[in-house]
Write a protein that binds this DNA or RNA. Structure first.
Length: 593
RNA sequence: GGAGGUGUAGCGAAGCUGGUUAUCGCGCCGGCCUGUCAAGCCGGAGAUCGCGGGUUCGACCCCCGUCACUUCCGCCA
């Protein structure tokens, strides 16, 4: 008798199953009691199936069904039957059939819900996080978690086929000065000493290369004690990889293949490779960002040629002091952008240090509004030079080069959003390469590593890099997708002599280097191979694939922006005995600095 | 560390320029209903308007402070 019944999922039943007796395990998604006939939508991970208790059902069954509330966990047994003529629901994958219930078992009950599963209104995020187990029952979360799994699976398959080994590296490590703050873990056995949680497996993967591993990857949890953002969590996941006897182009080619494979397997989308490459300088100069969104054009143009012949003093003095004047043409925005909306754009620019944002509109008769009175006499050559047409808005930014491009870049991003230029269905990858290796700290005047201290200067700079550190370009590369920095990597230094010179340039004391990561430098002395690698921000990648705005929506149990998990209320205080064990004491707030 | 936004029944929102019995939808509770699928109809309960202070005859509304959430800047190789 039992062999005639089988467990089915709520997503699989269709017209071919008519006549079968099946058991559905799931949750009461919707409950529609019509008095005579009673409909139940049973939901599980696979879908929703309508189950029916007919007028003719036994009183026992009817009264059991009367107990049901939303999200009760149930096992229903019944016979699959075709829905009556005209009752097929074309919006449901199982809409041609329904289950005529013969037996109903309540596996667990559920109180009134804090929010409805798949309700008309989305509850606020903190409530979703507090009841994440309910949120995970929604189709959206379920699909995103599935997508994440598939993306990890695709990456793993690809890298395995390419000869990579997945190797786990420690998550209790030595604190290293990498820029971001380390999370610290106190050691009980070695009281007074701390492990750090890794910001990335960087040092270990380089040591794996020294260990002859050749090709390593890891889907690695990383930890950074910095303020949260929509795309930043205190713990996050990277696809971390490293290759020996490889240079930049080997890594880029491999990762292009990995992206193509992942997008094909998960979304069925063909990603054309190779990806366009932009130098850091060109990316900044044309888009004002080292992670440009290439789904829309709006490249910056040089406005300097038009400055000398005008009386607009601001731009003149900018050029005299060695700055830049950049123009951006916003197609067809002349009408839509009132003074008020332009002020909003200006605010965006001011956040990045700009003093203002100049503008003018192109009309059939020339230039109008804003600074047009200074440039009207050059209207023809300006519109021609910038490729602007009647109806366009011209935005102008003058400042030192960095401030000019970065602030206009912020305006470009805001326009992209406001005007809906960023098509969510497009995926535009690019590489940004040739980053400067060193950056001057404006306050101290000291040279600092722009990325980290283990990245290789490009060959042509090595011999003389001490002379002009600011001009040295590194073998560094970022992968960018739709304005998101999705991956970052570099060719690493494997030569202790070069490493030592880099330490000198950034003023990193030898003895401290020895103390902090002497083990790595030591490893390099023992025939370490040249190597290069990269790490993909896995959460961000999945976020973009899922067309979400925040990585919290693609992480099963994220922290909120305050670093708190509303569900389990971590972080929490610990009791005195635990602290005593660790020989730690809490400094009262008023005494702390 | 800084700037902006939000906070009104379990949930999502409305509440105008200071005077309302604080409104609506969903959910919840009770009743009716043989075909719904966001079921429908009738009835009901449920709100110290985030918290504290102030101005005022009178505050959801104005002011000050504070807390929470959130976006952005700083920060984040």
């Amino acid at each position: 008798m039992e062999q005639n019944k089988r467990t089915a999922t709520c997503g699989e039943l269709n017209i071919g199953d008519v006549g079968k007796t099946v058991i559905l395990n799931g949750w009461i998604h919707r409950n529609r009691d019509h008095g005579g006939v009673h409909f139940l939508n049973i939901r599980d991970r696979y879908g929703i199936t309508q189950a029916v208790i007919d007028e003719e059902a036994s009183d026992a069954l009817k009264s059991a069904a009367g107990e049901l509330k939303m999200e009760y966990c149930v096992a229903v047994t019944g016979i699959v039957r075709a829905r009556p003529e005209g009752m097929v629901n074309p919006d449901m994958s199982t809409g041609a059939v329904e289950l005529s219930i013969t037996d109903l078992k309540i596996l667990n009950t559920c109180p009134a819900l804090p929010f409805m599963i798949e309700g008309e209104d989305e509850p606020n995020e903190n409530l979703r996080l507090k009841y994440r187990y309910l949120d995970l029952r929604t189709e959206g979360m379920r699909k995103r978690i599935e997508l994440r799994h598939k993306a990890a699976w695709a990456a793993r398959s690809y890298l395995t086929e390419q000869g990579f080994w997945e190797i786990e590296t420690p998550t209790f490590i030595k604190s290293t000065p990498e820029g971001a703050r380390d999370w610290l873990v106190p050691s009980r056995i070695n009281a007074g000493k701390f492990y750090a949680l890794p910001q990335s497996p960087q040092l270990y993967k380089q040591i794996l290369m020294a260990g002859g591993t050749d090709r390593y990857y890891q889907i690695a949890r990383c930890y950074r004690d910095e303020d949260s953002r929509g795309d930043r969590q205190p713990e996050f996941t990277q696809i971390d990889l490293e290759m020996s006897f490889a240079g930049r182009d080997d890594v880029l080619k491999l990762v292009e293949g990995m992206m193509a494979r992942t997008f094909k397997d998960v979304l069925g989308i063909d990603i054309p490779a190779p990806f366009p490459r932009l130098s850091w300088r060109d990316a900044m100069d044309s888009y004002g960002s080292d992670k440009p969104d290439l789904r829309y054009e709006m490249k910056f143009l040089d406005f300097a040629p038009f400055v000398p012949a005008s009386d607009f003093g601001v731009f003149k003095s900018v050029l005299e002091s060695g700055g830049a004047v950049k123009a951006m043409v916003v197609k067809g925005a002349g009408e839509a952008y009132s003074r008020k909306k332009i002020t909003e754009l200006e605010e965006e620019a001011k956040k990045r240090g700009a003093k203002g944002l100049a503008w003018m509109k192109v009309t059939p008769d020339g230039l109008d509004g804003g600074v047009s009175k200074f440039y009207g006499n050059q209207a023809g050559s300006i519109t021609e030079g910038l490729g602007a047409k009647a109806g366009d808005l011209i935005l102008l930014m003058g400042a030192d080069w960095k401030t000019a491009v970065e602030s206009l870049g912020a305006v470009r991003v805001k326009l992209g959003k406001d005007l809906g230029l960023a098509d969510p269905n497009r995926f535009e990858f690019c590489w940004v390469v040739d980053f400067p290796l060193f950056e001057k700290n404006e306050e101290t005047g000291a040279w600092e590593p722009a990325h980290h201290m283990f990245s290789m200067p490009q060959d042509r700079f090595i011999e003389t890099m001490e002379e002009h550190p600011g001009e040295v370009l590194g073998d560094l590369y970022d992968m960018v997708l739709n304005g998101n920095e999705l991956a970052s990597g570099s060719v690493r230094i494997h030569d202790p002599a070069i490493q030592s010179r880099v330490f000198d340039i950034v003023g990193f004391p030898k003895d401290e280097a020895e103390r902090r990561f002497g083990f790595l430098l030591e490893a390099f002395r023992y025939g370490a191979p040249p190597h290069a690698g990269l790490a993909v921000g896995f959460d961000r990648m999945v976020m973009v694939m899922a067309k979400m705005e925040t990585i919290r929506d693609v992480i099963a149990f994220p922290k909120n922006t305050q670093g708190i998990s509303p569900m389990d209320e971590s972080p929490s205080e610990v009791d005195a005995a635990q602290l005593a064990d660790l020989r730690l004491a809490i400094v009262p707030e008023e005494k702390a600095e």
